[in-house]
Design a protein around this nucleic acid. Structure first.
Lengths: 215, 215
DNA sequence: TCTTCTTGTGAGAAGTTCTAACTCCTTCGC
DNA sequence: GCGAAGGAGTTAGAACTTCTCACAAGAAGA
């Protein structure tokens, strides 16, 4: 399996350095949050001096964008792998929770406080859409038969530009929206530490929200 | 109503400068996020030079803590005022949404991504608890009669150290936890812009979540 | 072999937080 | 009223940050 890739040694070196920079960046983010991420500190930690990193990332924002892309990619792959091995909607939800708890700051980098003016690049939005599709598929499969024609479903039926290419019925889309927001509600508060000191188990709340959603 | 307060002119001046600093800080936060808040820029904007602000706030963190306290205080007062004028649980929920939409970054400063090591000071946690009590009261009042003994309620019945002093039944506490996480789920994703471009109305989702919670 | 392209370097500008020393003015006690 | 004390503002400066630029050194291709 060697020598089959057409990359030059230089290109391999370049991608390897980029990977190491991103690894160090994840460590910094995990311990001090994304706002404390410092290109300079990463460079010194890697044994090279300051501006050298700008050969690999145009600026701090590009590094962060790359980290966001990597996180989205990883989450999308994790969910898809779970779905491929037969996980139902509840299984996907628990997979999401496990993924989030594994690195809270990584989850919050994707779904936490954004910078006001920030516009996500097109490809990361595509991956985000990929995640949505995986969940919508599971929603369509788990849909309870007695659909009570909720107001949300009728509204979504008329406003489904975001799922224009997906064959799922509006009830599945409505279920997806409820699922997404409820799971994110639990995870966001849990990861931010707002349940700390309250004494109850966030997992019970998570399972409760999940159960009421599937009944 | 003048001259009745025992404050010296100096104290009045001091509190007035602090208030103006915090006002400028809110402007910065609203337009560029909390991470872009700069004491230096605020000072220059106020016509005084850099380190002068350190007479009023020990450091950047203390200013942010003060902003957090003010935001919590404002939210608690807003909710209590709504409750006092007869708002039920749905009314309080909509009050919360209005408050959040009025200044997204303010809401996200309280409930968004935290700095990993940050510990909220005791008094802000007390105000946060005050908000919870207002909502729990409304939950207890709106409780549907047919309590189906949810697993969450039974768990909370055994783990209610956070509401030890409150007479609400565990079903009300369970309802509060569901309410809190669901409303936060919608608001957080909406304010972070994750619904942008999807084409549906977040308010419909908000009302849907609220309706399923009260049925 | 020679040229070109890439990588890393140090210098340095502009920004940040925050400390220290020094004025200046208000306030308080006598 | 007068002098001491304390608060508020100043500039200087250290230690950071991001990021640009000009230059040196190496690897890759002609």
């Amino acid at each position: 399996m060697a020598k089959s890739d057409p990359t030059t040694p230089r290109e391999r070196y370049r991608t390897q350095v980029r990977a190491e920079v991103m690894e160090r960046a994840w460590e910094q983010i995990a311990t001090a949050g994304a706002s404390a991420l410092s290109l300079n500190a990463i460079a010194k930690h890697m044994g090279m001096s300051g501006p050298a990193l700008y050969r690999y990332f145009a600026n701090r924002d590009e590094l962060i964008t790359e980290l966001v892309r990597e996180a989205y990619r990883d989450l999308a792959d994790t969910l898809r792998a779970a779905a491929a091995t037969g996980a139902d909607l509840a299984g996907l939800a628990r997979t999401l929770r496990t993924w989030a708890l594994a690195d809270p700051q990584r989850y919050l980098l994707l779904y936490g406080t954004p910078v006001p003016g920030y516009e996500a690049p097109e490809d990361t939005r595509a991956i985000s859409q990929e995640i949505a599709v995986t969940l919508i598929d599971a929603c369509a499969a788990t849909l309870p038969q007695g659909a009570p024609a909720s107001p949300l479903a009728t509204h979504v039926a008329d406003h489904r530009t975001w799922a224009a290419g997906h064959p799922a019925p509006p009830e599945a889309l409505a279920l997806f929206l409820s699922l997404w927001t409820r799971l994110h509600g639990v995870l966001s508060l849990e990861l931010a530490g707002h349940f700390g000191g309250m004494g109850f188990d966030a997992e019970v709340l998570f399972e409760s929200e999940l159960a009421t959603l599937l009944s």
